[in-house]
Amino acid sequence: MARRRRHPEPASTELNLTSMIDVVFQLLIYFIVGTSFAMGEQSYRMDLPEREGASTIDPLELDEEPVTVEVLGGGRITIPGPWTSPVSVEHLTTFLAARLSDGLITSETPIRIRPRAAVPWGDAVQAFNAALAGGFETVGFEEPAP
């Protein structure tokens, strides 16, 4: 004991920051990766079948008549069929909900969005979104109307 007192070990004056910096950078990377990738972007799932070429589906076997939503641009739409068509895309969801309760269509009825050629993509997506919001499972895009 006497010998240890005579030669005390020098006190370490260095603070070891390595592990702290290590962890801080790890956290930083984690948050950057977790937040800044494609901020605010969401997407709609859509299955794209091959439209051209021979189809093995017999149209006579299709039990559901598709509903075609023609997008005219500027928020205007028209839906050909035995009903009073809504004129604005804002009323598409309520219109489809009303036809569901009428029993004219079911939630499995295919909805085809058919924008005119010059209609901006944003308007087409608006109609697509309205049909999805109505709870329909099969919503797709068609060839552009002239």
Partner: peptide, 22 residues
């Protein structure tokens, strides 16, 4: 894209996500 899906053998259609800004 649909043609690419068919060429790659996706018989039940190609899954496409339409990206929007929320």
């Amino acid at each position: 894209l649909a043609a690419a899906g068919a060429r790659a053998g996706r018989t039940d259609g190609l899954r496409v996500n339409l990206v929007i800004q929320v």
